[in-house]
Design a protein around this nucleic acid. Structure first.
Lengths: 112, 112
DNA sequence: CTGCATACCTCGAATCACGAGGTATAGTTT
DNA sequence: AAACTATACCTCGTGATTCGAGGTATGCAG
């Protein structure tokens, strides 16, 4: 059951979701596919990851939902608000810091 | 009340430890400081993180320990074995994949 | 003898990614 | 019409693991 805490994934679903919603309003099922697309298949997240993160983000008031009927199907569209955009910026900075730190460490030749 | 799973840190302690031990034998307390140094202060890990990871790595036979007395103090030096080096390579590939995926997603302009 | 750096350790808490499983509708295939 | 696939939403339990707080002990400087 579940690999759990797979290396290097913590915080990544939230960051990717925020990044996509920063560009345009989208719904859950669409986001699942969009993540595969924008990461060029490097990262694939299931619905069991996406929906809970979306709900958590909504509860924390970083985005709001609106239901929309399309072709007889009900979709829940999410969009970022100002608070969410601030949160995205903070996460991007964190990512940048960690990413640079790790890359720096990995690139350091034996002599350093 | 540790922050717990802080964004983007999962797997990072293990990767950094392996990377450092791939270069030379080191002991816990030394590794704590080395991590700060090689990441240029971007990442700082406490002993509460380092020791458990070291023990887990040892239990999984990725490295072995040997006690050494230096200036009346006992240090536990850890060194990587072939298995551990293989593990490091795998983790580096994982990191590379995630890192590239996230960076690609973040760099994608709104139009994509 | 007080404090600090060195050096090891354990524990509980909190988090969070994940797969499995569940519901329902629409369209296509057999 | 039955079966199957894609769309679209959801919840739950498991497991991994990061973290700070706290604990022990030695050597050395003030």
């Amino acid at each position: 059951m579940g690999q759990s805490n797979p290396p290097f994934m913590s915080g990544v679903p939230e960051l990717l979701l925020l990044r996509l919603l920063d560009q345009r309003e989208m719904y859950g099922y669409e986001l699942v596919k969009a993540i595969r697309r924008v990461t060029e298949e490097a990262i694939s997240l299931g619905e069991g990851v996406i929906y809970p993160v979306l709900h958590s983000l909504e509860k924390r008031s970083f985005l709001q939902a609106r239901r929309k009927k399309v072709d007889g199907r009900t979709r829940v569209y999410y969009s970022l608000n100002a608070e969410g955009r601030r949160h995205l910026r903070r996460l991007q900075e964190d990512w940048q810091r960690i990413q640079t730190g790790v890359t720096t460490a990995l690139d350091k030749p034996a002599g350093a």
